[in-house]
Design a protein around this nucleic acid. Sequence first.
RNA 1: GCGCCCGUAGCUCAAUCCGGAUAGAGCAUCGGCCUUCUAAGCCGACGGUUGCUGGUUCGAUUCCAGUCGGGCGCGCCA
Length: 587
Amino acid sequence: MKDALHDLLLHALDSLRRDGVLDAPAPDFVIERTRSREHGDFACNVALLLAKPLGRNPREVAETLVAALPKSHRVERVEIAGPGFINFFLSDAAWHEEIRRVLHEGTQYGHSRSGAGRAVGIEFVSANPTGPLHVGHARAAAIGDTLARLHSATGWKVYREFYYNDAGAQIQNLALSVQARIKGIEPDDPRWPADGYRGDYIRDLARDYQSGATVEAGHPTGDYNREYSRELAKVDVPEAAPEVTGYRVTAGQDPDDLDAIRDFAVAWLRREQDEDLRAFGVRFDVYFLESSLYTEGEVLRVIERIAQQGHSYEADGALWLRATDFGDDKDRVMRKSDGTYTYFVPDVAYHLSKWERGYKRAITELGADHHGSLARVRAGLQALDIGIPKDWPEYVLHQMVTVVKGGEEVKISKRAGSYVTLRDLIDMAGIDAARYFLIARKSDSQLVFDVDLARAQSNDNPVYYIQYAHARVCSVQRQMHDRSILFEQHNALKHLDRLRGEHARAVMVEISRFPEIVEASTANREPHLLAQYLRELAGAFHVWYNAEQFLVDDEDLRNARVALAFATRYVLANGLGMLGVSAPLSM
RNA sequence: GCGCCCGUAGCUCAAUCCGGAUAGAGCAUCGGCCUUCUAAGCCGACGGUUGCUGGUUCGAUUCCAGUCGGGCGCGCCA
């Protein structure tokens, strides 16, 4: 809709330039929705931008432009207002056309091809396999998965990636903690390992290890990724990610075999994380193990490449990256004096792998407490000198989540001890409410998750409010079925002009915003815009629903109203689908 | 001390592709609407110096500088 107006203005600009009336390049003007009805439906600032280079009064420029505007059936009239805005008042026909489009495109309405099939890798959650996922991971999961759904909807080839830090000291602590539990040592015991994990799940883990249990989790090695990378490099866009096959670990039962304990514990926790994420409606295409970067020499390759490009130096027995050459605030150690590597080198190697696998866009979703690694990883990638853009990868950082119930902060979980888990959140609020609440706020502001509100079955709760709008349309459909009333779409589309009044109009206007919202949410990595929008659409629908009866005797009018109701349903369902929230048929 | 994020109605938050016109919703409070497709809904009222001070310009919640308040990060930890 916006595009059509954009074209009209470009035409006007072109013809004026050809006639020599306008002597300036077309500025990067904006067409936006107006805030108030008095200003029409859309407004454009092009005259304001042209005024300065032309040295002319903006209102005068606007008048020239408006006079040169081609006629369009979509535009009823054009006004010049304020300092020189060009306001467009759209014809009813323009809105009707959009409703036709919704019914025609159905479940595809709001989708686009702006991604043009390019590959985007979205990394999120990436929790260490050392404990259950917590509410911060829940927010990451909701944001990352919604971004992934949005990119799919806009024509990108999406790969969801999960990176496991399975190689460091944390894993050693995990193994030691489990071993301590196996030997009957409690967290309060002086013999308990220094940085041990104290949660109850360690006891469950120890018990399963001792009983010789077998667990099955995601993929074991980086082989999968490397195989996948060749495919991606070759054809650029593979049809689908290969099926992720699981791997099994059977507990060794020997309390002194720390390696066996570690392997079992990692598999056990990965299984638990997998299950929680699956319960939350989130699946991944690629599981990438940090350990594979060592075993396959990728870490070494990064170090050598950076050294070869002259961006590193030795000092104090360590090898440093000259990160300050690339915008970081200090130089960073890559290889410690004991010969091991700092964690950020595999991080760079991992992102290098994403680059080599052909991701035109890579989005890394992290907790804001990791924002320090951002400059470091980008500096490392720049130091490779292989043409990676300075702002690649893109980052989305999310702020802290606090869970509140009964007016009090909830801090403790039975499973994990010191924090509230994703599982707790699902149990307390349900998947739909949890996903919606976690996505509804801008990711860089802190989030208070009010459990009582999330589970409230009332108009206080935006999730129910939106879902209820959808269920109401379905209820109308059921009524039609029960009363043997047919919806005649052909007839409906001919009589959309029977839709009169502000309320129906408001619904049409809201519906037409959907494609714009989807594009903006995707391009700006701001999924909260979509959550917010659906609340507004549902509101416009409820008002209209309340004001007018759909199933009237007048066939033409009835068909027209039902058509608009169905169009609303498509948008609600499509939008909720992008959030991973269900669209119930009845409530 | 340095860096990043946030500060908008009593509360929770918006403000659309980095500048637009009279800053919007919901909740809370007060007052109305169900013999009609789900009242899990709707209508109305009340509520603001966008933390503060300057700057940039036709125009600032938005950009810049400073300042105050909250959060996070500044390791040869991950």
